[in-house]
Amino acid sequence: MATLHTVNKSPFEKRSLDCCIRHANPGSAILLIEDGVYGALKDTAVSDKVSGALDGRKVYVLGPDLHARGMSDDRVIDGVEVVDYAAFVDLVTEHDRVQAWL
């Protein structure tokens, strides 16, 4: 009964990512999109929290939104997978439900 969670807010401005991680059960996945992609970056104040979320969960970041913001894939936390829109669609169909943390 795995859920795909989406987060579209910068973790430096809003608490959506934090709320999402607290509610994301083991086996679920988190996809960072729009301003949420800033949560996927290495060496930030939230990197450790996101790395911690990888324990028992998958974390993805939407490449098109990452690249639009001037961030390259090598800036992304190890273990966080960069995906395109086609893979976003696959994540939706592979999970039982999608929960947006708006």
Binding site: A2, T3, A24, N25, R97
Partner: peptide, 11 residues
């Protein structure tokens, strides 16, 4: 609440 959310069909 997290468990309950995971029992839903549509959120």
């Amino acid at each position: 609440l997290s468990k309950l959310m995971d029992e839903q069909d549509v959120i």
